[in-house]
Simulated scan of single mutants.
Amino acid sequence: MLERLKGKRLIIVGDSINRNQYESLVCLLYSAIPSSQADVYMKGRSRFFRAKQYNCSVEFYWSPFLVQLKPKQELGGRILRIDKLSDWERSCRGANIMLFNSGHWWLHRGSLKKWDLFQYKGKVVSEMEIQSAFGKAMKTWSRWIDRNVDMTITKVFFRSLAPTHHGKEWCYNQTQPIKDESYVAKLPNPIEEVIEKTIGRMRTPVRYLNITKLTQYRKDAHTSVYTTRQGKRLTAMQRRQPESYADCSHWCLPGVPDTWNILLYASLVMDILP
């Protein structure tokens, strides 16, 4: 992978699950070189890895919606601008490999929901069907890719949704994957359909990194009560309350995201990297 990345930039944009994949990839690459040959640092919510000997970098940019979320303002709430990208687009121009994801934060409800209003083409509305709003945001993203990505120097990937394991297939205290071949997790298929349709209409070739089904079986691979909140491990008291604190969204490392990165590498090997 380092040889493939020599002299190149790989950028990863999205939510904390894509950050999970970034951390996996950095751990894999870091293990292959002397520590003195690696730079790892953070800037705000962005993260960076550089392998000096190979003159390559892997960069993560936080953007769970891909479009812009404005904080609470005089208009009465937090505004999700589905026709304007967030700041990642200024930092990512000219990258050689781009890996995106989105979807999880669009499905949040109640106290987890991060927006109050939608803004589209100058109009602010309080309600919009989520599939429609997500479709418009994906169109905003796809237009930027088509207008700004040079296909001769850049490859673009979009990763599918990573399943969570709640309810009947709760991740807490699980040590074995699901082995029932008939098991089908209940995922928000409309979101996946929007992604696939958007990619299918684009002028720029986008490789769809579909990790959903292979990941559905791994209810045992989440961080569960061994997760962190705001960068801190759960306390002993919190670990005794798994119904409130077990993290069934993010993944242990080494673990499932390593497989996603092996598939990413395989995709790069299948095509001659510019």
Rank of each mutant, 00 (worst) to 15 (best):
L5R: 02
K6Y: 04
G7D: 10
R9M: 10
R9F: 12
R9Q: 11
V13E: 02
Y22V: 05
E23V: 03
E23Y: 09
S24C: 11
L28D: 01
L29A: 06
S31N: 13
S35T: 15
D39G: 07
M42G: 13
S46P: 01
R47T: 09
A51R: 12
V58W: 07
S63Y: 05
L66Y: 02
K72M: 15
D83P: 11
D87W: 13
E89N: 14
E89L: 07
C92M: 10
C92A: 15
N96F: 02
M98G: 00
L99K: 02
L99P: 00
W105T: 10
Q119M: 15
Q119E: 14
Y120C: 13
K121Y: 01
K123S: 12
S126C: 08
S126H: 15
M128F: 10
E129N: 14
Q131Y: 06
T140G: 10
S142W: 04
M151Y: 10
I153A: 06
F157I: 02
R159P: 01
S160L: 11
S160I: 05
L161F: 13
A162R: 04
P163V: 00
P163I: 00
H166W: 13
K168H: 15
E169R: 10
E169C: 06
N173Q: 08
Q174N: 14
K179A: 10
V184S: 08
A185W: 00
K186N: 11
N189W: 08
N189T: 01
P190N: 05
K197I: 06
T198Q: 08
I199H: 12
R201S: 10
M202C: 01
R203T: 08
T204F: 04
P205D: 02
V206I: 12
T215N: 01
T215D: 04
K219M: 11
A221L: 07
H222Y: 05
R229P: 03
Q230M: 01
A236D: 06
R239V: 09
Q241M: 14
Y245C: 06
A246Y: 09
L253N: 03
P254Y: 10
Y265S: 05
Y265F: 08
L268F: 07
P274H: 05
